[in-house]
Amino acid sequence: MKYLHQALILAAITFAAEIIKYLLPLPIPVSIYGLILLFLLLKTGVLPLEKIEDVGNLLLELMPLLLVPASVSFITALDTIQAMLLPVLIMGLVGTLLVMILTGRVAQAVIRRRKGDEEHE
């Protein structure tokens, strides 16, 4: 019953996020509205973490699995994508690597400088 209760709270938050999206239709997805809402509920103490922690952690652990249908939908775009396949592949592969490396190095440099180089390799 504890799990059902937690799942119910999370479902309610998701629903509330849908309502916010309906009232405030910015190009922001329901999930981000919900993420911010849940964060505020936790931060203000309105919703104690224990009330959702077990089911929340389970969902986080399962997230890669939940992404499978979305990534399979890739094949439904195979026909239309061909006209610009090369730029899509370059941006998807090389671009992703560059952004990852650059963001990581820049963030790490800032963190280390602020720490006064105490943790240098």
Binding site: L10, A11, I13, T14, A17, V30, S31, I32, G34, L35, I36, L37, L38, F39, L42, K43, L49, I52, E53, G56, N57, L59, L60, L62, M63, L65, L66, L67, V68, P69, A70, V72, S73
Partner: peptide, 25 residues
């Protein structure tokens, strides 16, 4: 395929919302 897989898809929104948990911690 999607008729079956949609049950996973539906849970993706609450799962993404739960990213607020590590953010909060």
């Amino acid at each position: 395929y999607y008729q079956g897989a949609q049950y996973l898809d539906v849970l993706l929104t609450p799962a993404t919302i739960c990213l607020a948990i590590p953010l909060y911690r």
